[in-house]
Design a protein around this nucleic acid. Structure first.
Length: 423
RNA sequence: GGAGAGAUGGCAGAGCGGUUGAAUGCACCUGAUUCGAAAUCAGGAGUACCUUCACGGGUAUCAGGGGUUCGAAUCCCUUUCUCUCCGCCA
């Protein structure tokens, strides 16, 4: 959530930066400012009345103590007569606050100054491209064929057990999943991240803290009986660890990582996007999360991006890094890099990681603050990135490394799989 | 799931419905003493919002929400959570 103080002081800046996300916020901002004024006006009136009542009550107490019962009773009656005014002011003030809040939660985060404008994914900026695309023959197979051929993934049985988008991994396919998870976690821990195993069901406050709620609840599975949501990413529980807390700046940066399954309803997806492993309802992912000082968050963002690139390099996958344009960025992000691997048989780029700086957007919702000595607490910056999401890594691993003998496992992964070839 | 007990500041722990934002202890910060330190003494110290050029002032906050009252940490209702006992169970 944007800070109202900032909007109040820099409405022009807010409007022009939201324009980069292709949002004309002029009307919304004007309305927000009006509601903010209204809220403060009512708050002042209410607090003034409360102060009068407090004073009066104190006086009544003193009068009783000194035995002046008559005067006390008189003042009591007078004070009681303010009650109708009080309840009206209370409900008005509450409504005004509610109205303001309802507007504020609709506003997406402001994009960083360097974010390119643009409406669609093809206007994202290619930061760089690395690795050679595999020289596959005409007879190369897409990963879903390979998965079937080598009995690695059973999509049909997944449909039987649960539904589309819930594959069953078998044999070396399952082993490959486990290998990748361990590989990613080991990498992250070596890079200084603390491993976390969080809950994968979260409550409403948690969903709100990272920005999934109230807007995108249709994207999450919901366990209605207990009012809990299945997490769409480990970012949600791992960042919310610090909800409602004030962290000593000395302890920064906080770097956490965690493996979790992720659940996404993906309502509205169709066609080649959902073929095979391209888009699933349940998938595995290792996530990295940082809590950073505002002055250092953009350095950290680049480090995280380069860290993820390093893993892709070790996996010998051709990849490219994109800086997302305003129109392709998520609601909460100020700057996002996507990392995509090239999937040789499908001949398309697949997003395997998204690394974002949320600046104070999540921290403001979560009341996650930093404190240095006696200074006033200030909001922290939060960042996260996938490192990495498994399905599309597996897709490109299978497709790019197919040979006549079988599927070659990259060297770095062999200690984890225990085999170098799927034949 | 059933029965009971409880939730107070960073922690521990008081708190007859009326100067209780809250005693006390520990921890913490500042100053005095000291060559320095320990000990001792004096003082300070939560968070959020509103207001003020500023000094300052106001409101809220004793798990969350609602109620009674001129006035609630204190009384009532409710939700959540914790603990103890029973049941069930990886």
């Amino acid at each position: 959530m944007l800070e109202i103080q900032y909007i109040r002081q820099n409405p022009e800046d807010v409007i022009s930066r939201l324009a980069v996300k292709n949002i004309d916020a002029t009307a919304l901002i004007n309305e927000t400012l009006k509601l903010d004024e209204e809220k403060r006006r009512l708050q002042m009136a209410l607090e003034e009345l409360l102060a009068r009542i407090n004073n009066s009550s104190k006086e009544i107490g003193d009068l009783y103590k000194s035995g002046k019962k008559q005067e006390a009773d008189k003042l009591k009656a007078e004070t009681a007569s303010w009650k109708t005014e009080l309840s009206k002011l209370e409900s008005d003030a509450k409504n005004a606050e509610r109205n303001l809040f309802d507007k504020l939660v609709l506003l997406p985060n402001l994009p960083h100054k360097s974010v390119p404008s643009g409406k669609t994914p093809d206007q994202n900026e290619v930061v760089r491209e690395e690795g050679a695309k595999p020289p596959l023959g005409e007879d190369c197979l897409p990963h879903w064929e390979l998965a079937k051929k080598y009995k690695l993934i059973d999509f049909e049985t997944g449909v039987k057990i649960t539904g589309a988008g819930f594959p069953v991994y078998t044999g070396k396919g399952a082993r490959l999943q486990r290998a990748l998870i361990n590989f990613f976690l080991d990498k992250a821990v070596t890079a200084g991240y603390t491993e976390i195993e969080p809950p994968i069901l979260v409550n409403e406050e948690t969903g709100y803290g990272t920005g999934q709620l109230p807007d995108k609840e249709g994207q999450m599975y919901f366990a209605g009986q207990d009012n809990l949501y299945l997490i769409p990413t480990a970012e949600v529980p791992i960042t919310n660890i610090y909800r409602d807390s004030i962290i000593d700046e000395e302890t920064l940066p906080i770097k956490n990582c965690g493996y979790t399954p992720c659940f996404r309803r993906e309502a509205g997806s169709y066609g080649k996007d959902v073929r095979g492993l391209n888009r699933l309802h349940q998938f595995d992912k290792v996530e990295i999360v940082q809590i950073q000082h505002p002055d250092k968050s953009y350095i950290a963002l680049e480090e995280m991006r380069d860290y993820v690139a390093g893993i892709l390099r070790e996996l010998e996958l051709p990849f490219r890094i994109l800086k997302l344009c305003g129109g392709d960025m998520s609601f909460a992000s100020a700057l996002t890099y996507d990392l995509e691997v090239f999937s040789g048989a499908q001949k398309r780029w697949l997003e395997v990681s998204s690394v974002s700086n949320f600046e104070t957007f999540q921290a403001n919702r979560m009341k996650l603050r930093l404190k240095k000595g006696k200074d006033k607490p200030r909001l922290a910056h939060t960042l996260n990135g996938s490192a990495l999401a498994l399905p599309r890594i597996v897709a490109s691993l299978l497709e790019n490394n197919q040979t006549a003998e079988g599927i070659r496992i990259p060297k770095a992964l062999i200690p984890y799989t225990g085999f170098g070839l799927i034949g």
